[in-house]
Amino acid sequence: MSHHLFILSPSDTPLYSLTHLSSRPAAPAPSPLSANLPSWSTSAFAGTLTALSGASSMAQMSTQGGGVRMGGGQDRHVIQMIANASLDMIEDVVRRENGMYLKAVDKFNEWTISAFVTPGNTKFVLLHEGKNDDGIRAFFVEVWELYLKTMMNPFHTAHSTIRSSVFDTRVRASAKKYL
């Protein structure tokens, strides 16, 4: 089961991204309809279409027997697209609700999206498959703390990419712990 974390600036620019492969069991089996997909075309556009509709990840899953997937290549682009598209929902929900943690704010294809919006309108977007409510909440709170520590650097603005290796290590540790 994999998780994808993106930290997005208020202008939707990714400041940090993390792909975490969890050792937990994979999500419940997908809909029977998504099995036995046809491979009817080999053009590049069909490839895009396949990827965007989530079919390629299905195919991967079936070939690898439900094991962990590597989010690379075309797939990575799709995951970014999904994260980006979920901002619509996040913005909508943020306007209505007060909490910073937005639990399972959106779902798309096989992904569930949880988000955490800081008071400075920085968004942590997490794509995950299974349900892990408390873990994700704890993870977000820890990432927030780490993020705040980074932001206290006077040379760091809301728009600058986070390149700190310390931040990276700690977020990874936190992901290992909670996800």
Partner: peptide
């Protein structure tokens, strides 16, 4: 999605529409 004002989602789907049409054209 466009009716709802969810532009990013709309665009995500539109990419698939374009992919679909282009696939037809190319094939």
């Amino acid at each position: 999605y466009a009716l709802l004002g969810f532009r990013r989602k709309e665009v995500y789907v539109l990419r698939e529409v374009v992919g679909c049409i282009m696939d037809l054209i190319v094939c």
